[in-house]
């Protein structure tokens, strides 16, 4: 379990991170969203014991980042927003180096390396020199490096920048898999769609302040209290709008350009079910009835004013 309590970092007069507090459970995948200079990297570096907090602290499975940094380091895998690769080193040697640093016995290292290479889809590049890998491959190698010691917490600082769409999709799968394995994953990014698919928690940070934190749904609802329901209907539409407007929890209903009815629903899922029932009971021939997927982009733009320190 990761617990962050009042974490704060100041540079002179600049407050880079302002009293951040949140808790994550094993299996949580946190999308850490913020504009440039919002304080994502600073937060992640503090949790990874690289940066001394000005005040406040964090603990991972009971190990405090200030009192017991060595204990914390054994539990975390930190992937920075730069690579930190060595020249003249082969991919497997690079991994072997870190496996050795993390104290994995030399007998187990080959199998560990093969595992992480396979996980990151780099098996064919095992003997390639690090500098000969493409940017995306280097990025995956860095991720592989984070995994050699099977950490409980992964801190990924903008892991998807530089990846092609396929690699991005694979990364998403990989992170989901890591979440299923019971690891805590923090993924920072400012590219929102890439987070939407697989995070179960989001934190929006702006000017060092955590503006919103929680389950994806909660955060979206806090910003955008009504749900959008799209209904597509065979036949006449105006009657549907009228019927919908009369239902409980519906604040607005209109027909959009694609010819479907968009209903703004304030209420719960209960109300949504009621609405569908009513519509059907009134004889409307509905062939599609769906809630619009959460739009983190909107949430983000609403929360952040786009101003940077």
């Amino acid at each position: 379990m990761l617990e962050i309590r009042n974490l704060r970092k100041t540079y002179g007069d600049l407050v880079a991170v302002r009293d951040l507090s949140f808790t994550l459970e094993p299996g949580d995948i946190l999308g850490f969203i913020g504009t440039n200079g919002a304080g994502k990297t600073t937060t992640i570096r503090m949790v990874s014991t690289l940066l001394e907090p000005t005040s406040g602290t964090a603990s991972i499975n009971g190990f405090d980042i200030q009192r017991d940094p060595m204990g914390v380091r054994r539990l975390i895998g930190y992937m920075p927003d730069f690579f930190g690769l060595y020249d003249d080193v082969k991919a497997w040697e690079y991994l072997d180096f870190f496996a050795n640093i993390y104290g994995i016995p030399s007998k187990q290292r080959p199998s560990v390396i093969d595992n992480v290479l396979e996980l990151t889809d780099l098996t064919t590049k095992r003997d390639a020199f690090v500098q000969s890998l493409s940017r995306g491959m280097q990025q995956r190698l860095c991720l592989a490096r984070c995994l050699v010691h099977d950490p409980a917490l992964l801190l990924l600082d903008e892991p998807a920048s530089g990846l092609d769409p396929r690699a991005r999709a694979e990364l998403r799968e990989l992170i989901l898999e890591l979440g299923r394995m019971g690891k805590i994953v923090i993924v920072s990014s400012h590219i929102l769609p890439e987070l939407a698919g697989f995070c179960n928690k989001v934190g929006v940070i702006e000017r060092g302040e955590l503006l919103a934190f929680g389950g994806v749904g909660e955060v979206v609802r806090s910003v955008q209290p009504h749900r959008k329901v799209h209904a597509r209907i065979v036949g006449e539409l105006d009657g549907v709008v009228a019927t919908a407007m009369a239902c409980a929890g519906v604040s607005d209903a209109r027909i959009d350009n694609s010819g479907s009815v968009v209903i703004d629903l304030q209420g719960s899922h209960e109300d949504q079910a009621e609405l569908l029932k009513t519509l059907l009971a009134k004889g409307h021939r509905i062939f599609e009835f769906r809630e619009e997927a959460v739009n983190l982009e909107d949430v983000f733009l609403k929360l952040t004013r786009g101003d940077v320190n």
Partner: peptide, 8 residues
Amino acid sequence: LDLVACSP
């Protein structure tokens, strides 16, 4: 150096 610094 950071990579080594955040390892145990």
